[in-house]
Design a protein around this nucleic acid. Structure first.
Ligand SMILES: [Zn+2]
Ligand SMILES: [Zn+2]
Ligand SMILES: [Zn+2]
Ligand SMILES: [Zn+2]
Lengths: 172, 172
DNA sequence: ACACAAATGTTATATTATAACAATTATAAA
DNA sequence: TTTATAATTGTTATAATATAACATTTGTGT
């Protein structure tokens, strides 16, 4: 287990992400710590490339594209190429550490990776500032499963992405 | 107004789409008729290319990609090129006659285009047969809007796509 | 040290989508 | 009907996203 002290105390409240001025360094540190723990517990190897890509994804709360990541990574690692990024993304997705935003061909860190099973997030995405936050709405999930079930359909995975204006971007 | 006789009588019940053996010619005819009516009512021009692309999209209940459409269209119209397809898709999306399935970069016909406002569908997509059906769940939509609203977020559009097994593909 | 598997490097290519400008066609005013 | 105008389509090129295939290197356990 990686050294971590009083993680609970540093962890921020849910919804803090809409605040454009929160201390984002904590988001990054927490995400990398959780990732290290999860991978260690699973015997999965969070190599330096993978860790760095995860860190780059967490550089903001905005979904980021594969080639944007590549552009940055290339400055530190001259031989980085598309497969470098896509392999890291594949690993991080498998480990449930990031999610793919289908409507943007982009990737975002999962703020609450599940140790047991990987989940697919539900997102609110601001069309103005670009920030996205993950919902934890089991009710919606249940209702969707029920609707499907009424037609005899069994859901295995789902994509829910809502675009609109976050509270900070509604100048009113 | 295009000639249409007793459309109500030919129209199939909701959910018929999961039946792999329904009379799909009726789906196509209805879709093209409705499209013609809607466009006429709006002064929008359903040109032969646009109409043909819509027909090709309706050739099944499976989402179809732009380049698959192009492949077919090229056989009838030698000078068809990517812009030919993408312009038609853009028009059909604007008119609310088709939807884009984000998780597949593919397009599917809307079985119930709204004369007034265009909506974004919610889909159940079978991973086995590939068929997709559109849900009409206002409850889910309302719940999602409420969840967003609790965070001060205002939804403008949304993507809901659930993958799984349709009743016909659950061999059990 | 050795064998093996996993990860990364490298080159090429596939897939999806748009930009830019020219030519044609539909619409309606003169 | 002619003519002006806007909408649509043709055409060529390129951007953006993603994967295939195979070589090389690195990590892990024996
Ligand atoms: Zn943050
Ligand atoms: Zn915002
Ligand atoms: Zn049908
Ligand atoms: Zn099926």
């Amino acid at each position: 287990m990686v050294q971590r002290k009083a993680k609970q105390k540093t962890k921020q409240k849910g919804g803090a992400e809409w605040s454009h001025n929160h201390d984002h360094r904590l988001c990054i540190v927490d995400a990398l710590d959780r990732a290290a723990d999860l991978c260690a517990g699973r015997g999965a190897r969070l190599t330096s490339i993978r860790r760095r890509v995860l860190e780059l994804i967490w550089s903001s709360h905005r979904p980021i594209g594969a080639y944007s990541l590549l552009e940055v990574l290339k400055q530190e690692r001259a031989n980085a190429a598309p497969p470098t990024i896509y392999r890291a993304l594949e690993f991080l997705l498998e480990q449930g550490l990031i999610h793919r935003i289908e409507s943007q061909n982009a990737y975002i860190g999962c703020p609450n990776p599940d140790p047991d099973q990987q989940h697919k997030g539900m997102f609110l995405i601001c069309t103005d500032c670009g920030n996205a936050v993950e919902l934890e709405e089991t009710k919606i999930d249940r209702l969707l499963r029920n609707s499907a079930s009424n037609q005899g359909f069994v859901i295995e995975s789902r994509t829910v992405e809502a675009a609109g204006l976050c509270p900070e971007c509604q100048v009113s």
